[in-house]
């Protein structure tokens, strides 16, 4: 009896880090949250497949595209199933759409925010640069894996610019609340993807199939990007995101919008 409880609790503790994106909106002290990231600082801890993987060396890979990408072929393995291909397709497409929106939100927010709060210039520039890096990563992956970008591209561009500009006009707190809402949704979204990808890799390994460098790299880069998004969430909360006047309403509406956009982008 005691043994079974113990094993269940260890299993739970193995799984809970995946859900830690929920923590930021519940815990008030922002400083401590940086350590909640599931990417191991030291490679000794955490789950089984992380111990074997090499640490991520380059910040943003820019994968080759076009015919030259086909030259680095690995030893053959089984084809990906239709379900796996469908998941990868919609995951990469929605990620690109998300990063497109993120870069545009920060681009639109920066001028009004910096005009009224010049001390935020380095922070806005830093967050924008990271988002631009993520966008570039996913652009490269889409081109490499021949995935159609979302058909809603122009619509998301307009919507993201309007959201960024609108919240920036409402003031620093509202702009930060927008960041908080968006990054909360995105953190959860990326966590979900990492979970599915790890499951996929697990099942491939248990069947003795070759997993392939592409999938391992994908998990690594999504993890890294997820951590940077959660870092933005911390910055937003540090900068009084929760003092925005209709905080619940604002974040609620933006988060619902995010979920809707993710749902649509996964499909078209």
């Amino acid at each position: 009896m005691k043994l079974s409880i113990g094993s269940r609790s260890t299993r739970a503790s193995l799984q809970t880090p995946l859900y830690d994106f929920l923590a930021p909106s519940l815990i008030i002290t922002p400083r401590t949250r940086k350590h909640f990231s599931t990417t191991p600082r030291t490679l000794s801890a955490t789950t089984h497949n992380e111990s074997s993987k090499p640490p991520l060396s380059q910040p943003h890979r820019t994968p080759k595209a076009g015919p030259e990408a086909a030259t680095n072929t690995a030893p053959p393995s089984k084809p990906l199933t239709q379900a796996q291909r469908d998941f990868l397709t919609s995951a990469l497409r929605v990620n690109q759409a998300g990063e497109l929106a993120a870069t545009l939100i920060y681009t639109a927010q920066t001028p009004p925010i910096v005009a009224s709060h010049p001390h935020l210039r380095p922070l806005m520039a830093h967050m924008y640069e990271q988002e631009a890096g993520h966008f570039k990563t996913f652009n490269g992956l889409l081109a490499k894996h021949r995935i159609r970008p979302t058909a809603m591209y122009p619509l998301w561009s307009v919507a993201a610019t309007a959201l960024g500009w609108g919240t920036a006009i409402m003031g620093r707190e509202a702009a930060m609340a927008c960041t908080e809402a968006v990054e909360t949704e995105i953190g959860g979204h990326y966590n979900g993807q990492v979970r599915v990808l790890l499951d996929m890799i697990d099942s491939m390994e248990s069947k003795g199939q070759e997993v392939g460098e592409d999938l391992r790299e994908l998990v690594d880069s999504i993890r890294k990007i997820r951590d940077e998004e959660l870092e933005h969430l911390d910055h937003a909360v540090e900068n009084d995101a929760q003092k925005a006047v209709p905080h619940e309403l604002l974040t609620g509406v933006i988060r619902a919008g995010c979920r809707g956009a993710i749902w649509v982008s996964e499909r078209v």
Partner: peptide, 14 residues
């Protein structure tokens, strides 16, 4: 409009 993931480490489906 369907452009499924094109893998380089896995063979193409039949």
């Amino acid at each position: 409009l369907r452009r499924p993931y094109h893998s380089y480490t896995h063979p193409a489906p039949p």
